[in-house]
Design a protein around this nucleic acid. Structure first.
Lengths: 208, 208
DNA sequence: CCCATTCCATAGCACTGCTATAGAATGCGC
DNA sequence: GCGCATTCTATAGCAGTGCTATGGAATGGG
């Protein structure tokens, strides 16, 4: 690499694209570079085209979600921590539904899947602590249960993000569903409900 | 309406668009009408543009899913019938992932929501029969539980349709998750597992 | 029979992502 | 200091997109 050029152009274009997405404006090649002073070619030298740029935005979305999850402190209520992770997902889908659907569009390239895996790992570790702490049965498979919780939460987030079901209708269903899965994993029904109530709110309001 | 014209043009265009979608070819205005003899203008007189045509395809997808669900006979195992509904959803998402994601794109117009509501009602009635038959606790809210089951199944279908998770990985998670929700609703663990195993397969292989 | 009404085909517009090409800006060797 | 190879970037243009203005064609009611 001979020319250092302008490495900040990458981040500039990503933020422009993410901004258009958040403002619900069409994310077009010319729209992204408009007003930035850089030309359309920059998208190709840095991202190899629009799918590459959108893939970078996708990864940016996972990074933000990972930051939001990292901002949730691990408490002595691991079941609540798991619910908080779900709340963080839901908050992400609620605040920027377009970005959420983009994040889970498998047709776009994901340059580094590390951040995406980290978000799931956050949930797995909470389940693992719940098993270790006796809230869940000892024979519970942490990864398998985390996948179940994730699947339920992702369904809720997608219904929310695609506009099929409003938030007010999604929230009670997903929270009660999470409580049911916790209960089926061995948790006490009352404890599960309380952990969901406190944890979900904690995750929804967490700031990265 | 003075000119009877060609009412079959509507269905022709819908099927052409659905075919392109299933063949994973780009669904473009000129591509839809290519080879049909009709011109691009027909899309505007009949559907008021591409979003309208895609909305009609969306409704067609719900109609097909409703047909698939209707082909599942109600047995004396209502819990298995509920699992069969989930299997029908999964089969739909697996066979034509593009159509599935289109069906749940709330930004497209849905001329008649009847077929979409019918698919959920199918699940609600299965839950209601399970409550009546004593498999689920009497205080279970059929609509609420159906929403939970639907949310978990939809999350699985979306992960499958968007290519985030392959079918082989999705299936064990969603089936075990459904069994957990049945169990939390009061069903016996062994009965729930057996019903899921038989019902899921029944729904996956049902033909409209 | 005539005509108002509806549908449809053609052509063209503004826009999209993308690419070929030439120019500008840099770090390395001497 | 200086030429050179290398990398980035700006311009212009391409094929393709959804959409629309306009005029012709076909029909049923008076």
């Amino acid at each position: 690499m001979v020319r250092p050029a302008r490495p900040e152009v990458r981040q500039l274009l990503i933020e422009r694209a993410a901004g258009l997405l958040a403002r619900r404006e069409p994310v077009t090649l010319r729209g992204v570079v408009a007003g930035t002073g850089v030309s359309t070619m920059a998208v190709y030298t840095h991202f190899d085209g629009m799918p590459g740029l959108l893939g970078a935005v996708r990864q940016e979305g996972f990074s933000r979600l990972a930051g939001r999850l990292a901002a949730i402190p691990a408490t002595d209520d691991p079941v609540g921590d798991a619910a908080a992770a779900g709340g963080a997902y839901a908050a992400s889908a609620r605040l920027s539904p377009e970005l959420y659907t983009l994040m889970f569009d498998g047709s776009l390239p994901l340059p580094d899947s590390g951040a995406a895996n980290a978000t799931l790992e956050h949930l797995v570790s909470a389940v693992r602590r719940a098993v270790a702490g006796g809230r869940f049965d000892a024979d519970v498979d942490p990864l398998g249960l985390a996948h179940q919780l994730w699947m339920l939460g992702h369904g809720a987030c997608m219904l929310l993000a695609t506009g099929v079901m409003p938030f007010e209708q999604v929230e009670p269903v997903v929270t009660s569903g999470l409580a049911c899965l916790y209960q089926a994993a061995g948790d006490d029904a009352g404890l599960a409900g309380a952990s969901v109530r406190s944890g979900w709110e904690r995750g929804m309001t967490a700031r990265a």
